[in-house]
Design a protein around this nucleic acid. Structure first.
Lengths: 181, 181
DNA sequence: ACGTGCATGTAAGACGTTACATGATTGG
DNA sequence: CCAATCATGTAACGTCTTACATGCACGT
């Protein structure tokens, strides 16, 4: 089973919120799902062109008062159908690649110091992430006009929280183990 | 900071255990670190050729009694240095991409049924993984001739265990939430 | 006048999978 | 003899990042 294009899915997903430019998409992705997804301009713009060619989006050049002209993309019927089809498909699990664990796996080759630093750096990163999750949760729960999406957003957030806690616990254990004899 | 080639690092790492062929590498990677790493032949063979060209490994064509001729690769001094350099570098965190969460994030667009199935499938996958971890731990702990590496292998395993438990807990919570009104 | 943010894009190259092609040996 | 496993590789394709190029508008 061939994996479907995920950048495509992400863009269609956000365009289902309303028409947006490539620049908007980049920004909204960064502000909403950066914990588990990212897209670069180098992917976004060519993909928008392709989606347009395939009739999944319509491009409209807008020259709003002030500000330079923008290319605003709008989901078509076909695009909506494609998005909904993707949503109904089971996820294809990607092959795992965790460079951190790969390094740790070969830790015996090096000074333990290196492995310890690796874990410490990870702990710091996780601490930052945990703080971000705290902020995000506060924001989401404060929202009065809770859209239907919110329960789903909270679910994705919750997985992040549980993961980060598990990983922080691991860091503690690992540092203990690596400081031993 | 440019990310260094990780396939290269993985191959050099395993070649530090002793000379191996591309086929061997594929097998040993699959049997030892498949929980957090994978390599395909399509990467391994071209990469071995490149490593050879760069003088990081030596290729020796062996025609052992019986069996077809094999290309066995051996780490050179330069290759060892390269590996150890990689080990001493901090890990560069890769941009995240979790298709499952992306789908769930847009769950409000679809029948809740789809999201529920997504979580259920995940739970099954996690259950399998948990069982594998149990087996691996048993094997690792039973080993009498504990090599120095073992503590590091156990650390990578431990992270897997903690993650899988956190994620299973999430599945429970998520299914509860998604079965509500 | 200048920096910052808005905005769109391209090019090079690395990374990675899948499918295919090929053929030897071993065990039933 | 046939299937499975050993073994090496290539080709096509898709994915993705980084760096670069370009230029407008707005505030100071």
């Amino acid at each position: 089973m061939k994996r479907r294009n995920r950048t495509k899915a992400a863009l269609l997903g956000f365009l289902s919120w309303g028409p947006m430019s490539g620049y908007d998409l980049r920004r909204v992705i960064d502000q909403s799902i950066s914990n588990f997804w990212s897209e670069s301009y180098g992917r976004i713009y060519p993909m928008l062109a392709e989606l347009s060619k395939d009739g999944l989006v319509d491009c409209q050049k807008t020259v709003s008062d002030g500000g330079r002209p923008r290319n605003v993309y709008k989901l078509t019927k076909a695009g909506t159908a494609d998005l909904d089809d993707w949503l109904a498909q089971p996820v294809s699990t990607a092959p795992p690649r965790d460079e951190r664990l790969l390094k740790l796996f070969f830790g015996a080759r090096t000074d333990v110091h290196n492995s310890r630093r690796l874990v410490e750096a990870y702990a710091i990163e996780l601490g930052d992430r945990k703080q971000r999750y705290i902020d995000t949760r506060a924001t989401l729960e404060a929202a009065k006009d809770a859209p239907e999406d919110r329960r789903f957003w909270l679910l994705t957030l919750r997985l992040g929280e549980l993961r980060v806690d598990a990983e922080l616990q691991w860091c503690e254990e690992a540092l203990l183990e690596l400081s031993d004899p």
